[in-house]
Amino acid sequence: MGRYIVKRIIYMLLTLFIITTITFFLMHSIPGDPLAHMAKNLPEQVKANYYKKYGLDQPVIVQYGKFLKNVFTEGNLGESLRYPGRSVTETVLNNSKVSGRVGVQAISLGIVIGITLGIIAALFRNKWPDYLVMFIAILGVTVPSFIIASLLQYTFTVKFQLLPTTGWGDMKHTILPTIALAFSPIATYARYMRSNVLEVINQDYILTAQAKGVGTFSLITKHILRNAILPVITILGPQIAGIFTGSFVIERIFGIPGLGSYYITSINDRDYTMIIGTTVFYAAIFVVAQLVTDILYGIVDPRIRVSNDNE
């Protein structure tokens, strides 16, 4: 197991390094002047000073070396090109707190409701609760989150005026975005959990337990759930990635000052340092989430551990 984790961490660092490099060179290969928006009408000397300030007068490879050094020694991702004086690292951290709150709420809601629905569907297989859950699951997978978000916004803020349309501050501002974001995790977990429970129910040890006279309740909680819930961990990684990309759209619709809406703004502004910084941050979270998922799965499922140790 130890070797496996070390191997995974090395891979993770390598991946992160490659993503950082690709992002950096991609952003610097864009034709045009990154300072065009403010340096257009300035005197030559001022222009040159601006370029010097951002290190843009040096060759790309030198800029890359500096960038790496700053990132790895002080965690400094540079300064916004659009808004001089605004630190990328600080902005990313501040905005990610907002996104993180909505994201964590959505993932928790998704896991709890999704798993519950999945269990209900499996236990009432081919009866109406099963069909209802599968209907919700199909909606959650096929209807894009921006449509769900718009519908929620329309229903609860325009029709019934229960919640604020947009904005950020109180708990009540987070309710609709959380539900909108949680829709797709709910659907995925419900589908996944349903098939897991159905698989476990047909195992011989469930029959054995029944034959030994285990009651229905403890059969479900102790024998079925414990075995069915473990593989759910594997989809946690992709789910976290899904929450990110969902948040780009949801935050824009609900006017939440989170990292997602900030990322979109910097893309539309062509604020290159900001794009690089945010991308690296997203990639880091994503890669770490994947690593944690893999390690957890290795701990939970002995078969994975064994096959990796034998390699």
Binding site: Y11, L14, T15, I18, I19, I22, A241, F244, T245, Y282, A283, F286, V287, Q290
Partner: peptide, 8 residues
């Protein structure tokens, strides 16, 4: 490595 880069 390519696969572990977030697609979007």
């Amino acid at each position: 490595i390519l696969y572990s880069i977030p697609y979007l």
